[in-house]
Amino acid sequence: MTDLRDLYQEVILDHNKSPHNYREMPDATRLALGNNPLCGDKLKLYVRIEGDRIADVAFQGSGCAISKASASIMTDSVKGKSLAEAETLYGKFHDLLTGPPDVKADGAGLGKLAVFSGVREFPARVKCATLAWHTLETILKGQEAIASTE
């Protein structure tokens, strides 16, 4: 049986309590809104892109512990990365949560993001963990629309 602690790891709880990069960004070059209508999570993601790099990234919004911590750790992880590197991380993170069960999700190359490996055992919560990433993806793809996990 999967323990609750696999989901609510200390790192996640810490980021939920004091999220990193939780602020408005007046000089953002891109802005996207994320929305999970099922649980009412709402997220505003700011990105400042310089050349092909994410020079700065921040977010605001309301949501559950998983979605807030995911947004917080995601902003830490992609800051300073190139757009291509961020895209690769997005793919790896997605695999970690939703990849086929026979593939061992070890979180290799994901750094701190690996704390979300427990989420795959809680299917109802996968959307919470991916909301920030889907929102980032709309920015990477240049869509700048409202991302929805529904």
Binding site: L4, L7, Y8, K17, P37, L38, C39, G40, D41, S62, G63, C64, A65, I66, K68, F122, A124, R125, C128
Partner: peptide, 23 residues
């Protein structure tokens, strides 16, 4: 206070308690 209903729902679920969370 300081806990999103969705997190309440997940923890209660693991205790065998079914409630609804959301709008």
């Amino acid at each position: 206070e300081n806990v999103h209903p969705h997190d309440i729902g997940t923890i209660l679920d693991r205790e065998g308690i079914a409630i609804r969370t959301g709008h």
